[in-house]
Design a protein around this nucleic acid. Structure first.
Lengths: 341, 341
DNA sequence: TTGAAAGCGTTACCAA
DNA sequence: TTGGTAACGCTTTCAA
């Protein structure tokens, strides 16, 4: 079996088409001026050689790599996947490609990823969340490309922001619970401070409870984020064991909420009735569960789309330190799982 | 506001550290021989300048880009996300980065993506599924890099394969249904032939029905793949309207199965009892639903991991046309949603 | 262990 | 509309 052969270059195409490499280069860009006939000849030569443009070389020469780097905490999360889709679609017209990394909810891993990605010289960077290591901040600042933080409202933004207040979003749920007449209210979230968005939700939730003069003690941190259906199930049992009087619970995500709902139903509890359960994120599962689960929709896809639009603007403006803040408004979707009567 | 500044290069670092660029280049690779002290000096200089290696240039020079291109049908799908995770983790030790694309279950889009990705000169390509346009096949053949097809068993493989028979997997479910004593059995899948894996499952399912001497008429194709919870819900109602005697149904994925389950429960049907429902893919939701949903586990993560291992081998072997076939064995997970008594 | 020279495949720039 | 020349920032190769 032969080793891999060297792929054809522009020079090969140019030779076959009887033009200079420079003309071939032009022929591959729509906007460049090349005679119709010449372009056709070149395309034919290229196709017959199986020529594919080398964007590595193109990027080196033009200093435009066509990459946008993006980090998300987890690949397997419908919310982040939706944001990513919005971003991809928004950037599609520009021909930019996404360079994706998963931080696994870990700032050290984020730092490693960001450095690895910056080696590819992305023209812009999108990061999920506002918590970063100092070195990561320095790397991004040095990179001197537009940075957009999404899904959060950092106190010290790196650049532009497309996000919302996780604390504020969670307080919407407290308002809803109180409106429905619940008094003994709990919260189920992840362990540790890795998931800063989850932590913000909890903080906002507890603060809102206090503001309503209610107890903020019924909190259970359970497992490492992202907290799963299984963990939601375990958590609600633990919560009920410790605070049997609990009437309503918000879970940090719809997945854990669904786990909690299923666990309650297996125990013969009525939801709502015996206990109300709410989630976060407007996942499909919240809509299709029995009963449908009250949740908060943060327009994940729109977040990505707005980030894309921002990047396009920033790249055109040719200046790196835009600090614009796009605020997404979380919406409460009240559903049967928390509605009385 | 100033325009973006030009990032520092190796030459800058070399100058500051008082060595040649070549030595800086070596200092950034663990295995290269550089004096301890020199390396330290260089690292310091680099850090103080905020220097980050340019892998665009490195790749051009060394002809090793460190990219593995991978396409999956959909970003928002836990199965493919798991495979991707297996792939990423398996490649982590090599330092290779994944260049990801979503085909949206469309071979034309796949062709476009593959061409775009080949411009980045990936060292290997992973594609999901065995259906490709002719031009796509040609492009991949010309690229002369290892190709691995996953999640399928193509009749004409492009290269190596890590997959399983979707038809065979579905027939496991028929065996299970028959064993449980169901006779009037249906199938819910997606519309059209876009999702070839779904189509294979249907074919295998219907063939197995016939082999058991059962009717294969209760088939509903509903909506474009990926078929959602909502479509699963609509589909089961339509199926029951047309064939009220249906005792058991397999859905093309766990998501549609869950939608179907929820719909039945809303209609007051008992699952199982009035109707048995099964899915495919071993999603979390199948495990945590009430009742838990019988499904088929195809070890999505392992598929990715095995693909990674294969790629590492192929890259070491330095030959491009390996045709090895790694067969994954789908396993039926029998759960309450289809169990009698 | 270190350095100098010659590319890698493309595009920017200037000239024709 | 086309072509020549000089980068782009790095690594390969060879030499010291």
């Amino acid at each position: 079996m032969p080793g891999r052969k060297r792929p054809p270059t522009m020079a090969d195409v140019a030779h076959l088409a009887g033009v200079s490499p420079m003309t071939v280069s032009r022929a591959f860009r729509e906007e460049a001026s090349v005679k119709q006939e010449t372009r056709r000849k070149i395309r034919e030569a290229a196709e017959s050689l199986g020529y594919v443009l080398d964007s590595t070389a193109a990027g080196l020469s033009s200093r435009k790599t066509g990459f946008v780097a993006a980090t998300i905490p987890s690949i397997n999360n419908a919310n982040f996947a939706d944001s990513l889709r919005g971003l991809t679609e928004g950037l599609a017209e520009t021909g930019m490609q996404i360079l994706l990394g998963y931080t696994d909810y870990d700032v050290a891993e984020e730092e490693r990823l960001i450095e690895q990605m910056l080696r590819r010289r992305p023209e812009a960077v999108v990061v999920t969340g506002g918590a970063h290591s100092d070195r990561c901040r320095r790397l991004l600042a040095n990179a001197a490309v537009p940075v957009v933080e999404i899904w959060d409202q950092p106190e010290e933004p790196l650049g532009a922001v497309v996000g919302f207040s996780n604390a504020g979003a969670a307080s919407l749920m407290v308002d809803h619970f109180v409106e429905q007449g619940y008094r003994n209210i709990g919260f189920i979230g992840g362990d540790s401070s890795r998931d800063t968005r989850g932590l913000d939700r909890r903080r906002g939730f507890l603060r809102a409870l206090r503001e309503h003069g209610l107890s903020d003690e019924r909190v259970l941190a359970y497992g490492m984020p992202p907290i799963t259906m299984a963990q939601g199930a375990e958590a609600i049992e633990a919560l009920r064991a410790r605070w049997p009087e609990t009437e309503a619970v918000m879970c940090v995500s719809d997945l854990s909420a669904f786990g909690a709902l299923s666990a309650c139903q297996r125990l013969g509890l009525k939801v709502p009735g015996d206990i109300a359960i709410a989630g976060f994120g407007a996942y499909d599962i919240a809509e299709h569960a029995n009963p449908p689960i009250t949740t908060i929709d943060v327009s994940a896809r729109e977040i990505g789309a707005r980030a894309a639009a921002l990047i396009i603007d920033l790249l055109e403006a040719e200046q790196s330190s835009d600090l614009s803040l796009v605020e997404i408004e979380p919406k409460l979707l009240a559903r049967a799982s928390t509605l009385k009567g």
